[in-house]
């Protein structure tokens, strides 16, 4: 017992002061991309076809990045070979609308607070059921991390629960494999109304690295209506937390 107390005192208090104090992310962390301006038409079209996951497109002569498809690749040819974009250190990426993930030279619109009625219901207590539908366990692992004492998700009134019957919504990871489709829809049906759906990670939004496989659906978008999109492969825990807090209107400022 004494050794436990001694160790506790030595390890100290480690819960981050987030969201009052911004986290320091590694220098090499790849967050919100910035589109380079005035690309020549040749560079633009070369950059567009260079992405193996079709995340880039030509939007009226400017580059447009679909953050729902972007894997934030370290060796992104559009960024490295063509200088068409750069990755910033900004971890805030979650949006409310699928179209909102289309990033060009306009300001990126982060997720909105829930509507009045939903906010009244879930603003102070949000219970989520997580379903992995073909996830590689990286998204799942970094959601689990939110339960550790560093993030301490419970202090925001958010909790992952064991039964869909106890849940206010569902957080989905993975591209929705053929084999998980019906279990996913059954879980959704078991959650009492009204309910939220959150797509976390590139797979759940658009199929991620598996978008071309006939064994998977292209994320949950065409199966269920989604209230929050969290991009990344996998999203950083702070990206997920920021998205959830935006939904509940708990981010400062």
């Amino acid at each position: 017992m004494l050794s436990i107390i001694r160790e506790r005192l030595r390890q100290g208090h480690r819960t981050a002061k987030y969201p009052q104090i911004e986290p320091t992310l590694p220098q090499r962390f790849r967050g919100l991309p910035r589109v380079s301006e005035n690309l020549s038409p040749q560079t633009l079209s070369a950059a567009v076809v260079s992405c193996p996951f079709a995340a880039l497109s030509d939007h009226e002569g400017e580059l447009q990045i679909d953050l729902g498809r972007c894997l934030f690749c370290a060796d992104c040819p559009a960024a490295i070979e063509y200088g068409a974009l750069t990755f910033s250190n900004d971890y805030r990426l979650a949006t409310s609308l699928r179209e909102g993930l289309l990033l060009n030279d306009e300001a990126y619109r982060l997720a909105d607070k829930l509507g009045k009625k939903m906010h009244k219901l879930f603003g102070r207590s949000l219970k989520l059921r997580q379903v992995s539908a073909g996830g590689c366990n990286a998204c799942e692992a970094d959601i689990n991390v939110l339960g550790t004492l560093v993030f301490d998700l419970g202090r925001f009134g958010i909790q992952f629960v064991a039964s869909p019957r106890h849940a206010d919504g569902m957080l989905v990871t993975g591209p929705v494999t053929e084999n998980m489709k019906s279990a996913l829809l059954d879980t959704y049906a078991a959650i009492p109304d009204p309910k939220l759906v959150i797509a976390s990670g590139a797979c759940a939004i658009a199929g991620g690295p598996f978008c071309q496989s006939p064994e998977v659906n292209h994320g949950i978008g065409n199966l269920l209506s989604v209230d929050l999109y969290i991009p990344g492969c996998p999203p950083h825990p702070y990206t997920v937390l920021d998205g959830l807090l935006r939904l509940l209107g708990k981010t400062p400022g």
Binding site: P52, F53, L71, C73, P77, S132, A133, G134, G135, C136, A138, G174, P175, T177, E178, N179, M180, A183, C203, G208, P209, F210, Q212, S213, P214, E215, V216, C233
Partner: peptide, 24 residues
Amino acid sequence: YQHRGIEQMLIGGPHPAAIYQVEA
């Protein structure tokens, strides 16, 4: 339940997408 068909996707490669599929 998690079957995504990775081995089949790697056929014909090495494709540019392959390393990301393998990492996942």
